[in-house]
Design a protein around this nucleic acid. Structure first.
Length: 852
RNA sequence: GCGGACGUGAUGGAAUUGGUAGACAUACCAGACUUAAAAUCUGGAGGCUUUCGCCGUGCGGGUUCGAGUCCCGCCGUCCGCACCA
C-alpha cells in the first residue's frame, strides 16, 4: 500500500503552474471578471495559522471561480510599513527596510509552499517608493480638494509607541497595538476629512448586502448618526450665544442648567480670571479616558457664574457650569441639562441641588403628582409643564419644538455624527513621508509633484527615543519650493492604514509608473468581488478603505464608490492552552498526553494544566507553526483541515486529531484512484448508453450540492458532501452494465470538486486518471437536472405529530395516495388505536401527519 | 449601561429555513489483519427501558396538525460601543 508523497508532488505541481503562468491575470473582456482578495499580511516574520486559513479560503474561491469560467484576479502583497520593523531595529539593530525585506522573502516562500493561485507578477510592497510615491500624490490631491487638512487639536497619544493614534485605533482607552493607556495631547496634526462622507458611508451600508450584518452594524454604530436640533441660547451679559446640539428638544422646558466641556473655548476664557475654574479644568485634563476611569468618575462641575436665558420662558435663566462629563469633540461641546429625563443630568442636578422638573409624564402616571426619584424617565409619554408642547407625545413634541426654534431663528434641525476626522500623522520613521514643507514665510507648502517621491532616508539611528526623522541631521532641512528660503520638511509619516486603503487598486495596475493605477484598468477589475479577512478590521481598514475610495473618486481617480462588493470575515484559530506547575505558558510542542489521561511536559514529565481553547497567541504560546504542519502533512492536508471543521466565519479549533483526520482522507483519496485507475475506460470514452445508475445519481447530486455550498461559502458542508460521496464510490457495486464508465465519471467528478481545496493532490490524481491537460484548465462539472431527482421519495409518517414510520411513495403523488399509503402502515394503525383520523396533513414529498 | 450574536451527542458541526434532529468528521468501543504497534478494513453507538415505547436541541411558558427553527419571559457565553447630550 503506497502512501501519497506530498513532498515531491506538491513542489512539482507548483513548478508546473508557475512555468505555465496558470494564474496570470490579464484584462479580458470575453470572460466575466472576478476579483478575489485576501487581506494582505504585515511581514512580521513568519506566516501563522490565521494566514493559512485566510489564504486557503481565498484560494478556494479563486480556483472555484476560475473553474467556473471567470477571469480571476487573485493578487498578494505586503503591508510593509509599521512599527514592529522599528522595534526590531531598536532591539536587533537591523535596519527596518532590511528586516522587512527579509521577512517578506521568508513569508513569500512559505506562501508559495501552500500552492496558492496568486498572480505573483502583481506583488506589491507598500514600503517601496514606487508604491508610496502615488500615495503622496493622492494626498496632495486630497489637500487641494479640501479632504486633507492640518489642525491643532486634542489627540490620542500612545506613550509606548511615542506616536499619535486615530480614534479607531484606541480600544478601551488603550493603544490598539501597544495596549498602553493613551494620553490626551494637544498637537498640530494632519487629518483626512472622513466626516465629509459620514452620511454616505452610513447610508451605503444598506447596499452592501454581501457583507456580514455584524460588520455593517459596527460601522453604523461607529458613524453614529443622530437627528436633533442645533440651537443658540443667550448668555446674559455676553454677545456670543451658547451653541448646543440636542436630540431631545422636546424637553426644553425641563432645562435646569447648561454645561460646557472643560475644553470649551469659553471655559478657557473664563479660567483666565477664575483660579478655581483653572484648577477644575486641570483636574479634568488629568482624568483618564479608560473605561474604568469613566465608570467610577463622579459627575462634577464648576459654576461659571454666568446665566443662560431660557429661549421660551421670559425672565427665566439657568446656571452655566463647566462639567467633566461634557465632551468637547461631540456636537458643540455644550449641552442643556434636563435632569428629569436624562440620567447623567439627574445625577448632576442632585449633586448640585438643581431643579428637577418632569416634562414627560409616563402613560401610567398621574400628571399632577408625577415626580422623579433617582431614575430619570427616558421613555415616551405625554408632555406636561411645557406650554405649547403640553399633551403631545415625545415624537410630536420634538417636531413641534424644532419648528418653533426655527421660526424664532434660534436654531435649526441638524444631524450630528459620532464619527470624527481621521488623524493620519504618526511620529514614526517606518512609514510614508508626508509630502509637505513648513516654511516660516509661506506656511505649509506641498512638495512639487516633480519632486515625488519624498523618500525615506536610509541613514537613520534608533538610539534616541522618538522619531528618527526628527533626529536626522540633514533630511528635514530643505529650501521652500515657493520662496527658496530655508524651510523644514514635515517629519511625521502617514498612518499605515493609508497604504492598505488603496492597495487593492494598485493590484489592478501594479507596474504603472505614471500614476497609482490606470482609470480604465481599475474600472475593469473593481470592485473587489470577494474580500476575505479578519473581523478585527470592521471599523478600521474597512471603513478607511471605503472613505479613501470615495475621496479618490472625488479627485477623479475612478468611478466606483464601494471597494468591496462582498466581504467574508473569517473566525479565529483557537487551541488549548497549557501551563506548567509554576503557571508559565507552554507551547503545544512542549506537552504530551500521559498514560492516565492527563497531560505532562515532554521534558521531565511534570504535570501540565490544560486550559480552555483560546485564540492562538504568542503570549499564551498556544500556537502551532504552519511550516511544521506543511512539512509533516503537506499543504493540501493543512488546507483541507482549514475548510472542514467549522464554517469559515466561526472560530476553528486546531487539534492534532483534526489534522490527522485530514491526512488520512488525503491518503484515502490517493488509494482510491490508485486502486481503480487501471480498470477504467480511457478518458474521453463516450458514454455507452444513457446510463442511469445509483452512482451516477450520487455523482450529479454531489455536483449540485457542492456547487451550492461553495456559492454560499458553506465550505465545511461542501467537504462533508465530498467525503460522503467518497464513501458512496467506495461502496459502489462493480459489474453492472457501464459500471466502469460510471466509476470514471464519479472519480473525475470527485477530483474536480476537490481541486480548489487540495489543488496538488487533485492535479496529481487527474493525471493518474489519464489526463494530459492540467486540472486547473478544466471547467467545473455540470450536473444533469434529470439525475438529481428520484422517481420515488420517502415520506415520514406521523400520528399526532409523532414519527410512527416511513413509506416510499411515487414522487409528487397526490394527497389521497400518500394518505392511503401512510394509513396502511401497521405501526400507524397501532398508534391510531382504532380512532378515525380527524384530519390528515400531507406535505408533498415530505410528510404525512395523521391527527386523531 | 446601550447594541448585537449565539446556546444541538463526549467534541467540531449538519438539519432543504416550520416537516424523519444528530449528515460528515473527531474521539471512543468491538472485530479482522499483525509477533506487536501504527496504518488499513468491517461493525457499533443520543439517554432511559427486557420489549411495546418514553424522553431528548440552555431553562420555563406559548402559537401550530407538527417547533432546534416562530413568539414571550428567564439563565449563560461571546463580540462591539463607552458619559455621544
Amino acid at each position: 500500500m503506497s502512501r501519497y508523497n506530498f513532498r515531491e508532488t506538491e513542489s512539482r505541481w507548483q513548478a508546473i503552474w508557475d512555468e505555465r503562468q496558470s494564474f496570470r491575470a490579464v484584462v479580458n473582456d470575453r470572460r466575466e471578471k472576478y476579483y478575489v482578495l485576501e487581506m494582505f499580511p504585515y511581514p512580521s516574520g513568519r506566516i501563522h495559522m490565521g494566514h493559512v486559513r485566510n489564504y486557503t479560503l481565498g484560494d478556494l474561491v479563486a480556483r472555484y471561480k476560475r473553474a467556473r469560467g471567470h477571469n480571476v484576479l487573485h493578487p498578494m502583497g505586503w503591508d510593509a510599513f509599521g512599527l514592529p520593523a522599528e522595534n526590531a531595529a531598536m532591539q536587533a539593530g537591523a535596519h527596518p527596510a532590511e528586516w522587512t525585506r527579509e521577512n517578506i522573502d521568508t513569508m513569500r516562500a512559505q506562501l508559495k509552499r501552500m500552492g496558492l493561485s496568486y498572480d505573483w507578477a502583481r506583488e506589491v510592497a507598500t514600503c517601496d517608493p514606487d508604491y508610496y510615491r502615488h500615495e503622496q500624490k493622492m494626498f496632495l490631491d486630497f489637500l487641494a480638494a479640501g479632504l486633507a487638512y492640518r489642525k491643532e487639536s486634542w489627540v490620542n497619544w500612545d506613550p509606548v509607541e511615542n506616536t499619535v493614534l486615530a480614534n479607531e485605533q484606541v480600544i478601551d482607552g488603550r493603544g490598539w497595538r501597544s495596549g498602553a493607556e493613551v494620553e490626551r495631547r494637544e498637537l498640530s496634526q494632519w487629518f483626512f476629512r472622513i466626516t465629509e462622507f459620514a452620511e454616505e458611508l452610513r447610508s451605503a451600508l444598506a447596499e452592501l448586502n454581501r457583507w456580514p450584518d455584524k460588520v455593517r452594524l459596527m460601522q453604523e454604530n461607529w458613524i453614529g448618526r443622530s437627528e436633533g436640533l442645533h440651537m443658540r441660547w443667550t448668555i446674559e451679559g455676553r454677545d456670543a450665544p451658547l451653541e448646543m446640539f440636542t436630540t431631545r428638544p422636546d424637553t426644553v422646558f425641563g432645562a435646569s442648567f447648561c454645561a460646557i466641556s472643560a475644553r470649551h473655548p469659553l471655559a478657557a476664557e473664563l479660567a483666565e480670571t477664575d483660579p478655581a475654574l483653572r484648577a477644575f479644568i486641570a483636574e479634568c485634563d488629568r482624568l483618564g479616558t479608560s473605561e474604568a476611569a469613566i465608570e467610577t468618575a463622579e459627575k462634577r462641575g464648576h459654576d461659571s457664574g454666568l446665566r443662560v436665558r431660557h429661549p421660551f420662558l421670559a425672565d427665566h435663566a439657568v446656571p452655566l457650569y463647566v462639567a467633566n462629563f461634557v465632551l468637547m469633540d461631540y456636537g458643540t461641546g455644550a449641552i442643556f441639562g434636563c435632569p428629569a429625563h436624562d440620567q447623567r443630568d439627574l445625577d448632576f442636578a442632585r449633586k448640585y441641588g438643581l431643579d428637577v422638573t418632569p416634562v414627560v409624564c409616563p402613560p401610567d402616571a398621574d400628571p399632577d403628582t408625577f415626580e422623579i426619584g433617582d431614575v430619570a424617565h427616558t421613555d415616551d409619554g405625554r408632555m406636561i409643564n411645557s406650554e405649547f408642547l403640553n399633551g403631545l407625545d415625545v415624537a410630536a413634541a420634538k417636531a413641534a419644538a424644532i419648528d418653533r426654534f426655527e421660526r424664532a431663528d434660534l436654531g435649526t434641525r441638524a444631524v450630528q455624527f459620532r464619527l470624527r476626522d481621521w488623524g493620519i500623522s504618526r511620529q514614526r520613521y517606518w512609514g510614508c513621508p508626508i509630502p509637505v514643507i513648513h516654511c516660516e514665510a509661506c506656511g505649509i507648502v506641498p512638495v512639487p509633484e516633480d519632486q515625488l517621491p519624498v523618500r525615506l532616508p536610509d541613514d537613520v539611528t534608533f538610539d534616541t527615543p522618538g522619531n528618527p526623522l526628527e533626529h536626522h541631521p540633514t533630511w528635514k532641512h530643505v529650501n521652500c519650493p515657493s520662496c527658496n528660503r530655508a524651510a523644514r520638511r514635515e517629519t511625521d509619516t502617514f498612518d499605515t492604514f493609508i497604504e492598505s486603503s488603496w492597495y487593492f487598486l494598485r493590484y489592478a495596475d501594479p507596474t504603472n509608473a505614471a500614476r497609482g493605477f490606470d482609470r480604465e484598468t481599475a474600472a475593469y477589475w473593481m470592485p473587489v468581488d470577494q474580500y476575505i479577512g479578519g473581523v478585527e478590521h470592521a471599523v478600521l481598514h474597512l471603513l478607511y478603505s471605503r472613505f479613501f475610495t470615495r475621496a479618490l473618486r472625488k479627485c477623479g481617480y475612478l468611478d466606483v464608490e464601494e471597494p468591496f462588493a462582498g466581504l467574508l470575515t473569517q473566525g479565529m484559530i483557537c487551541h488549548e492552552t497549557y501551563r506548567d506547575e509554576a503557571g508559565a505558558w507552554l507551547f503545544p510542542t512542549q506537552v504530551t498526553p500521559a498514560g492516565n489521561g492527563g497531560v505532562v511536559t515532554v521534558d521531565g514529565g511534570a504535570p501540565v494544566t490544560v486550559g480552555r481553547s483560546e485564540k492562538m497567541s504568542k503570549s499564551k504560546r498556544n500556537v502551532v507553526d504552519p511550516e511544521t504542519i506543511i512539512e509533516t502533512y503537506g499543504a493540501d492536508t493543512a488546507r483541507l483541515f482549514m475548510l472542514s471543521d467549522s464554517p469559515p466565519d466561526r472560530d476553528l479549533d486546531w487539534t492534532d486529531a483534526g489534522i490527522e483526520g485530514a491526512w488520512r482522507y488525503v491518503n484515502r483519496l490517493w488509494r482510491l484512484i490508485e486502486d481503480t485507475a487501471d480498470a477504467l475506460p480511457p478518458p474521453g470514452t463516450p458514454m455507452p448508453a444513457a446510463l442511469d445508475d445509483a452512482l451516477r445519481r450520487e455523482t450529479h447530486r454531489c455536483i449540485a450540492a457542492v456547487t451550492d455550498d461553495l456559492e454560499r461559502f458553506h465550505f465545511n458542508k461542501a467537504v462533508a458532501r465530498i467525503r460522503e460521496f467518497t464513501n458512496r464510490i467506495g461502496e459502489a457495486s462493480p459489474g453492472t452494465p457501464g459500471a466502469a464508465w460510471t466509476l470514471r465519471e464519479a472519480l473525475e467528478t470527485l477530483v474536480t470538486l476537490i481541486g480548489p481545496m487540495m489543488p496538488h493532490l487533485a492535479e496529481e490524481l487527474w493525471q493518474r486518471l489519464g489526463h494530459a491537460a492540467l486540472l486547473v484548465e478544466h471547467p467545473w462539472p455540470v450536473f444533469d437536472p434529470a439525475l438529481i431527482v428520484d422517481d420515488s421519495v420517502t415520506l415520514a409518517v406521523q400520528v399526532n405529530g409523532k414519527l410512527r414510520g416511513q413509506v416510499d411513495a411515487p414522487r409528487d403523488c397526490d394527497r389521497a395516495t400518500a394518505e392511503s399509503l401512510a394509513l396502511a402502515l401497521e405501526n400507524v394503525q397501532r398508534a391510531m388505536d382504532g380512532r378515525p383520523p380527524r384530519k390528515v396533513v400531507v406535505v408533498p414529498n415530505r410528510i404525512v401527519n395523521v391527527v386523531v
